[in-house]
Amino acid sequence: CHSECLGNCSQPDDPTKCVACRNFYLDGRCVETCPPPYYHFQDWRCVNFSFCQDLHHKCKNSRRQGCHQYVIHNNKCIPECPSGYTMNSSNLLCTPCLGPCPKVCHLLEGEKTIDSVTSAQELRGCTVINGSLIINIRGGNNLAAELEANLGLIEEISGYLKIRRSYALVSLSFFRKLRLIRGETLEIGNYSFYALDNQNLRQLWDWSKHNLTITQGKLFFHYNPKLCLSEIHKMEEVSGTKGRQERNDIALKTNGDQASCENELLKFSYIRTSFDKILLRWEPYWPPDFRDLLGFMLFYKEAPYQNVTEFDGQDACGSNSWTVVDIDPPLRSNDPKSQNHPGWLMRGLKPWTQYAIFVKTLVTFSDERRTYGAKSDIIYVQTDATNPSVPLDPISVSNSSSQIILKWKPPSDPNGNITHYLVFWERQAEDSELFELDYCLKGLKLPSRTWSPPFESEDSQKHNQSEYEDSAGECCSCPKTDSQILKELEESSFRKTFEDYLHNVVFVPRKT
């Protein structure tokens, strides 16, 4: 048989008469490798580009789960590009990614509803959504962080984005990388972005840091009482949809009607710091009717980097990364020049730590249904340095008659930039024990000054392991946590139920 035959053949030295091919099969003959313009397919066939392209389009058009959109890589027609490569849609070739590779997620039936953290986790790592997304989240724990972890990498949506009755959302900033909504599939009414009845939605994105392009379709905003109209108009300008909307697409009466839409800028007039305090004062603000001013709200939190936005980490279910302080308005003076500047002394802060701070007014709604208010920009203030805590785990070892090696770990709280350490030492008198000992005694162990690591005695271990207080009263049991108490109650309830079950099964009433 021919060298490319495997198993047997019907005619000697003829690659077209093989029972099976050793390498690849091409047009009725066995070959060692697939010549151009053919590609290896499933490690035994040679196919042309049209064959591989037909497989790709067949799966793409069917949208069946589990099928493969075949691509070409290293002269092979394979189910998908290997790690580190992405497909070129024009020629199906796998090309190296520039940075992290995109991950295209194809949605069944063309859309997916995100109504819980669990459903959001199914899209973790996706960068391109081939379909439409509907966000409908009523509640949950730590929602802002969970949504950002699972949806934060999405850069492109081919269909539309719909935010509907998501009472738990305060902001859409968890879509931190969303840059493009194509609108290839539109919501009824030709809408590519749809926001309806979101009672706590206050911000779409921080438009000073976020760009969003909507290729096709219109915007729809109705019944978002805490979303200011200025935020919607800003989205029109940034996304390129200005002029597409009709009169009733953006409701003037049901958007922002319960919001404090600040239209003035508060400026800080005085800032002073110490290692654990920050004193702030800002310019006074009074609405047209000074009785509408209820006070100020001061927001602050630790910020290692200057990239904080107002609604980071917030949701309507209680999660809030900001510390909020309510401040009463100052006494009002008739003389504008003698107006008191409101302020606040922030206490209990960490030394040498940068804080993000902003302040906003708290006002009631005027009778004319106009909203007044003022808010400052987010500023960054760093507390002063102070003395560091003591170095940890000092170790001293003498390696000769004239040297001592000293080692330690950095302090747990540096409280500033540590530039150097101060080492103090003092000579001590020799131990009298060394002169009084009889060095001729056998088995004498000389006193040693070398360091030995501390260890816990058996008594201390027994005390720590004991669940009861000892007789001397030195140790006591740790208080039980809520989960331990709940577990004990469940076990007790189970024992009672099981005992009742045994009584009912074992003891049967005697027939009379």
Rank of each mutant, 00 (worst) to 15 (best):
L229T: 09
L180R: 08
E302I: 04
S158F: 12
N399P: 10
Y270R: 15
T215Q: 05
K277G: 11
D367R: 05
N320D: 02
G183P: 02
I188V: 07
G243R: 08
S239L: 12
G243Q: 13
L219T: 06
P329T: 10
K234L: 10
S239M: 15
D377Q: 03
T118G: 15
K209T: 13
R176Y: 06
D377H: 04
M346G: 11
P410A: 15
M346C: 10
L227W: 00
N263G: 15
W207I: 10
S398C: 02
I404G: 00
Y191E: 05
N190H: 07
F221V: 10
Q382D: 06
I154Q: 00
S400K: 05
N263E: 10
H222Q: 15
W344K: 15
N320C: 11
S376D: 00
V381I: 11
E231N: 03
S274E: 10
F174H: 07
H222L: 11
P391D: 00
E184M: 03
Y285P: 01
N263Y: 05
Q403C: 04
L153Q: 08
N255R: 08
V381M: 10
T118N: 03
L294N: 10
P304N: 15
N263M: 06
A251F: 12
S274F: 13
T323Q: 09
P388N: 00
T371M: 13
I357A: 04
H222E: 02
D249N: 07
Q199K: 03
E231V: 04
L178K: 00
I327N: 02
E302S: 11
V170R: 05
H222A: 08
S274I: 08
Q199L: 11
L153H: 11
I250N: 14
I163A: 02
A303R: 09
R291T: 01
W344F: 13
G348F: 14
G140A: 08
L293T: 03
P330F: 15
I404Y: 03
I232V: 05
K103I: 09
L219E: 07
R347Y: 05
L147S: 03
N150L: 09
N387H: 13
W352Y: 04
E122P: 15
Q245L: 09
P410K: 01
Y194S: 10
I114G: 00
E231D: 15
L196G: 05
L169T: 09
K337R: 06
K350N: 12
P288H: 09
K253D: 03
F299M: 07
E184V: 07
K267N: 07
L280F: 14
R370K: 12
M346S: 09
D257K: 10
S116L: 03
S319D: 13
T386Q: 08
G217L: 01
S321V: 14
R272F: 13
R291M: 02
S239D: 04
S376R: 00
A303Q: 08
I271A: 12
S166G: 13
T371E: 02
W408T: 01
S171K: 07
L280V: 14
A374F: 07
Y305H: 12
D312P: 07
Q339G: 08
N399A: 14
E184L: 11
E262W: 04
L362N: 00
L293H: 03
L212F: 04
T383Y: 00
T213P: 05
I181G: 00
S338A: 08
N340T: 14
R291L: 02
L280T: 15
Q306A: 03
A316G: 04
K277N: 10
D206Y: 06
L293S: 03
L252S: 11
R202Y: 14
L406T: 02
H341C: 06
L186H: 14
L151N: 01
M235V: 05
L279D: 15
L180A: 08
W282V: 03
Q339D: 05
K267E: 02
E122K: 04
S260F: 05
G189Y: 15
V308K: 07
L201Y: 00
S400F: 05
S319V: 10
V104W: 14
E237T: 08
N211W: 09
E264H: 11
I278R: 00
A385M: 13
I129C: 15
R202Q: 02
N334R: 12
I214Y: 05
E264P: 05
E146M: 05
L280Q: 01
Q245G: 14
L201N: 01
I134W: 11
D312I: 12
R182H: 15
G189L: 12
V104S: 09
G313H: 06
N340Q: 08
L279Y: 15
K209W: 08
R202P: 01
F174S: 13
G343C: 04
H222P: 00
T383G: 00
G110F: 11
L143N: 07
C105L: 02
N130P: 15
L108N: 04
L107V: 10
D292Y: 05
S239G: 08
V324S: 02
L147D: 02
L331F: 10
S132A: 13
T364L: 03
S269P: 02
N190G: 11
N211A: 13
V324P: 08
G313A: 07
Y300E: 02
P351G: 05
S333H: 10
D292K: 01
N263S: 11
F221W: 03
T353I: 14
G373L: 05
M235K: 00
Q203H: 06
F220L: 09
G159D: 00
T383Q: 00
A195D: 03
R370Q: 07
L229I: 02
D257L: 03
L293D: 04
K226N: 04
L180P: 00
P287A: 03
L151R: 00
T113W: 06
R291I: 01
H106F: 12
P391V: 11
L229N: 01
C261S: 02
L196Q: 12
F299A: 09
N334S: 12
R202F: 12
L349V: 07
P336K: 05
K112P: 04
A251Y: 10
V104G: 06
A385S: 13
K226G: 06
S119V: 08
L345R: 04
Y167I: 13
D377G: 12
G152V: 03
S192G: 05
E246R: 08
S260H: 10
S173H: 13
T361L: 07
I134C: 14
N248S: 12
W286N: 13
L169K: 01
I135P: 00
E236W: 10
R179E: 09
R165V: 04
P391N: 00
L294A: 06
G256F: 11
L362E: 05
E156M: 08
R138H: 03
T361Q: 02
H106E: 15
L161E: 00
S116Q: 02
I327C: 14
V117T: 04
T273K: 15
K209P: 10
E155P: 00
D393A: 15
V325M: 13
T364Q: 08
T273W: 08
V359S: 05
W322F: 04
D393F: 15
Y191F: 04
N150R: 04
A251Q: 15
F193D: 01
R370S: 05
N399Y: 05
A356E: 02
Y270I: 15
L201Q: 03
N198T: 02
M346A: 14
D197M: 03
N141T: 05
K242F: 12
S338M: 12
K253P: 12
N307T: 07
P411D: 00
R176S: 09
L108H: 15
L349W: 00
E146Y: 13
L349S: 03
F296D: 10
E262V: 06
P394G: 03
L107G: 09
